[in-house]
Design a protein around this nucleic acid. Structure first.
Lengths: 75, 75
DNA sequence: GTGTGACTGCTAGTCCGTG
DNA sequence: ACACGGACTAGCAGTCACA
């Protein structure tokens, strides 16, 4: 599990918690929807500035996007 | 206080806690020393992959590099 | 509403040298 | 051991057409 995948999973989770579509989130943080898509799929390697933009739109602290998942495939 | 400054301060703090020089840290994470310098000064906008590289060399969770400072200019 | 490959402009990241 | 600048290469930011 790379850091990009972790970020992607977190973005997707927080986005769904807020009931937003990728397009809605893209609009709120001023980033293209296909880029959001790439981040969520873990194929993009965003900078900390982009991370902060997304986190602000998601209304979560930036560092939460890097957090490890709490109970996904836990052992 | 931008996210880059926050990252820079955290990197510097954890590096000093580990008693490493910038060159030492640069060697341990395989990143150029001048780049580490730029990150610490907050003039660079590193990617999450770079963040993870630095965090691993610092032996701290990646998200800690984005954490807000505990008692610096606290109100 | 989302996934994906390709594309261009710009910056992330490297390397050399100075104080 | 660190700050800072210039030049360079690899890769990211930002966008589109198509499925």
């Amino acid at each position: 599990m790379g850091v990009q995948q972790r970020v992607g999973l977190n973005v997707r989770r927080f986005r769904k918690e807020r009931g937003l579509s990728q397009e809605g989130l893209a609009f709120e943080c001023g980033i293209h929807r296909t880029y959001i898509s790439g981040v969520e799929r873990g194929i993009r390697n965003p900078t900390v500035v982009i991370l902060e933009e997304i986190a602000m739109a998601l209304k979560v602290p930036t560092w939460r996007l890097l957090e490890d998942l709490p109970d996904k495939s836990k052992g």
